[in-house]
Nucleic acid binder design. Structure first.
Lengths: 158, 158
DNA sequence: TCCTTTCAGTTGCGATATGCAACCTAGTAA
DNA sequence: TTACTAGGTTGCATATCGCAACTGAAAGGA
């Protein structure tokens, strides 16, 4: 297998590509951010995000299809529909927070509102960081990309 | 200010919105993933990602404009141009990794290749997680969104 | 009951963005 | 000097986006 073929395979089987097919569209992240902040209804998303209604409809549909949001009719008022995060959706929080912190640091230059705090200590959460298996925060120069099979061989040789 | 206006402002001044304007387009994340994996040249990106040449050209230009990639001519071969991550670009690693881990967990169902390991221990890095200020891993039900000013008042009242 | 409003969409249509293939220009290699 | 490579650009077709107007079912009020 040529180096080019190798790399192409690398991209095809990458989790990023898979993730982006589901949440990579223009408004998806902002809709999710809304959901994390307590938005539940179509009109809420629409007026708060200023998104076009047809696009919102389409995105909500896709997010529901992919099991990131759950769509339930409101039993008390049958016009209303409630969209809320599933476990799969809630598990996107690290992505959202990483993105947000990066934007705060490098683009907007100041912390966003509202702040996500530890419910008990009332302190804002820590910056998202890459950590080693034993929990130390590490920087890019302490890391290395390794082919999975090669890593396998390494450890069995040791 | 009405609740609607409040929320709208919340979104406008959110770091996510800011970040997405810069890296929210279709191919941006995949190009960055390529850069993290060592891709440097136009043709490398093009053949490995399978992206259209005009789009690639446009995206690289935007990423350079926003200071995420640096564009240097190769002094040895003046046809060649090198694109590489700046500090601002490297700081997107948590976003990329969160996204990738989510994709592995919820979409593709298996770890991607290559693996990012601690250079010294040779162990894969830990899953990205949200942590409290003192470093404990916390889950969504232990967190709360708080208005910045309100948090201010809370702490001064204490 | 009839009228109005709300909620959650859908439809039509023009403006952008994307993708493909062919072409271009400077520089290198034989 | 001919061929080839790197890094684009151009033209054109298709897909996606965004706005505004419309729909249809369900409340709510007089």
């Amino acid at each position: 297998m040529s180096r080019a073929e190798q790399l192409r395979e690398v991209f095809a089987e990458c989790g990023i590509g898979a993730a982006l097919e589901v949440v990579g569209e223009r408004w998806s992240f902002l809709i999710l951010r809304g959901a994390f902040n307590g938005l539940r209804h179509f009109e809420e998303f629409q007026t708060n995000l200023g998104i076009a209604r047809n696009i919102l409809s389409n995105r909500l549909g896709r997010l529901v299809e992919h099991g990131i949001l759950r769509r339930d009719p409101d039993p008390a008022d049958r016009r209303k529909v409630t969209y809320r995060l599933t476990d799969k959706g809630r598990d996107l929080l690290p992505v959202l927070l990483s993105l947000r912190q990066w934007g705060e640091r490098w683009i907007s230059g100041h912390p966003s509102n509202p702040v996500l705090v530890d419910r008990y200590t009332r302190k804002p959460i820590a910056p998202m960081a890459v950590r080693s298996a034993d929990g130390r925060e590490i920087s890019l120069r302490d890391m290395e990309w390794v082919d999975r099979d090669e890593l396998e061989r390494e450890s069995s040789a040791a």
